[in-house]
Simulated scan of single mutants.
Amino acid sequence: MSLSIPGQLERWRMMLGEAAENSCGKLSEQAQAADAALEWLYGRDTERAERDERNAGLGPSALSTPDWINHIHTLFPREVIERLEQDAVERFGIDEVVTNLEVLERIEPSESLLRAVLHTKHLMNPQVLAAARKLVAEVVRRIMEKLQTEVRQAFSGTRDRRRRSNMKIASNFDFKKTLTDNLHRWHPERQRLYVEKPVFISRSQRHTQPWDIVLLIDQSGSMVDSVIHSAVMAACLWNLPGMRTRLVAFDTAVVDLTADVADPVELLMKVQLGGGTDIARAVGYAQGLLSNPGRSVVVLVSDFYEGSSEHELVRRVKALVESGCKVLGLAALDSKADPVYDRDMAQRLVAAGAQVGAMTPGELAAWLAEKLQA
């Protein structure tokens, strides 16, 4: 189908709805199809619906998602199609969009698309799944690039100004000492300080004995953002010296994913989102992994909505703390980094000796580095 550009009156009619038809005239056949496609998507906007008196005849139920994808590819130019597909996923959560191979191969990778892939990967045929895996890999690479820097900075050790270092890297640069040692090279006429020899300081290592880190990740459907960042966090921690990292996903069952920690893409593609939640069972599994509780940290990433025995959950957390293990309850964060969790249960876990917080992955790395000081 050749694309024709709607006239000015047709554009106003499409913007204002059927109420403007008497003033703007009827839409052409192609414009009606475009109007139906736009209504299928933006008719879901609740704020717009409250102020819009348009009929629902061309609303969301008029087209299936695959039909809508095919329609917009014949009705709109490429830049409009990409915007519609982005809004479908990011604004309205229409995850089925990402099961279309052409969309996956063209659309810009983003965390919202990654979430959609994790929700719908079980619906994908092998060809679509292969394209989805590439998208996952690209998004993970971007997250890991940022998070790995934060993790390594947190665990690189405290700065020791008493010792000089031959490691001439920015994080070891001693600005004050460099300034003091080179003041005699100040040029008053040029208003410049000429540095002959920059000073770098050494770092003292925080860790002398290995620590066991167990990440317990709630994989219920509402936890997708936390699952993504936990997988990348585990991969970042995996190669740090003096640490043994385990990653365990759970809903009503417990799955040890440690074998895939080094490959967060593979790990995420194995996660099965949805189902109930048995946090107590996961904590019990973590207890069985610890050979030296005094050198162990259990990080429970969850919204703390326990679907099994709340009493048993509190009892097991208390037993972990009493054994010498550090227990951090990491409250679930949504896509905007806002905490979403059962505050009553969180308070009960605090009373049992756990520490509960809502923090980003980078803040979690800093917390771990602080708690694991030898």
Rank of each mutant, 00 (worst) to 15 (best):
R244I: 10
T245N: 08
M223D: 01
R281W: 01
K270S: 02
I217E: 07
T277V: 15
W211K: 03
L237T: 12
S296I: 13
V271C: 03
E266D: 10
S302N: 10
V298S: 06
L237A: 10
S230C: 13
L333W: 00
M269P: 04
L247K: 09
Q219H: 12
V298G: 05
I213R: 12
R295I: 11
G284L: 08
S230Q: 08
N292V: 05
K318L: 08
F304E: 00
S296F: 04
V283K: 00
N239H: 10
N292F: 05
K270A: 02
S323G: 08
M243N: 04
G242R: 01
D263K: 04
S308F: 11
R244S: 06
C325T: 15
L215A: 10
E322M: 14
I213S: 12
I217A: 11
L273A: 06
E322I: 10
A282Q: 00
A262G: 12
M243L: 13
K270P: 01
A331H: 03
M269H: 09
V255K: 03
D263Q: 08
T245V: 13
E312H: 04
A286G: 05
K318A: 11
F304K: 14
G329V: 06
D251C: 14
A234N: 09
S296G: 14
M243Y: 04
L328D: 03
A282L: 00
T277K: 04
A332R: 09
G274I: 03
V224S: 04
N292R: 06
V255Y: 03
L313Q: 02
D251K: 10
H311T: 14
A249L: 06
F304R: 13
L240E: 02
L257A: 04
A280W: 00
K318S: 09
G307F: 15
G284V: 10
R246F: 07
N292Q: 05
V297Q: 09
S309R: 11
R295K: 14
E266V: 06
V321S: 03
S302D: 13
L215R: 06
E310V: 05
S230L: 12
E322Y: 14
L330G: 05
G221F: 11
E306H: 13
D260F: 14
P264A: 00
L313C: 02
V261F: 05
P241L: 03
D263F: 06
L268N: 02
L240A: 00
M233L: 15
V299S: 09
A331M: 08
V265I: 02
L328T: 05
G221C: 07
L247D: 02
V283P: 00
L215P: 07
I279M: 00
V261Q: 03
P241W: 04
Q287M: 15
L300R: 05
V314K: 13
V248H: 06
V297T: 13
C325H: 00
L290V: 09
K318E: 09
I217D: 01
P293V: 12
A234D: 03
A253Y: 12
